[in-house]
């Protein structure tokens, strides 16, 4: 069972994402990389970054790091503290409501991402299918 915010978890997540036909369908017109930023808090002691290069319904490249500068530039960042990521993956927070209530922050064009809310939802439900250890 992979631990959240590790390279192993990122790999398994991308594998699941690439075999999720609902994501493929919802994200088929999406082009742009997104980085999940997991911020340190009481339950996790360092910032972690998962870079995902998303293109036409597939993740064609990924990289995990504890140092942001080691990652390629991404058009979007979805940012939140570790504890909120745990709640998101456990489906206790809706990804868009999470943004509207300040549990998460988004960097990048909101107007672009608003056209792909279905894809965003599929990305989160895919994370919930990874058997995750926190």
């Amino acid at each position: 069972m992979p631990k959240f915010a590790t390279e192993e978890w990122g790999k398994e997540y991308v594998e699941k994402l690439n075999s999720n036909s609902n994501y493929e369908d919802a994200g088929k017109n999406w082009e742009g990389a997104i980085t999940f930023v997991i911020q340190k808090d009481e339950s996790f002691n360092k910032d972690a970054y998962l870079y995902l290069d998303l293109y036409h319904g597939k993740c064609r490249d990924t990289k995990f790091s504890f140092t942001e500068s080691e990652l390629p530039h991404s058009e979007f960042k979805y940012i939140g503290p570790y504890a909120n990521w745990r709640r998101l993956i456990n489906k206790e927070i809706d990804p868009i409501q999470g943004l509207l209530t300040g549990k998460f922050k988004l960097q990048g064009s909101m107007i672009k991402i608003m056209r792909f809310t279905k894809a965003a939802k599929e990305m989160v439900s895919t994370a919930a299918t990874v058997d995750t250890q926190f």
């Binding site: 919802a26 868009i96 809310t117 279905k118 939802k121």
Partner: peptide
């Protein structure tokens, strides 16, 4: 179909829908 799929209404509907 493409336009409807890009609407925010897709995300809060009680049932998920494909294209």
């Amino acid at each position: 179909v493409t336009l409807a799929g890009e609407s925010t209404g897709m995300v809060t509907n009680p049932k998920d829908s494909s294209s």
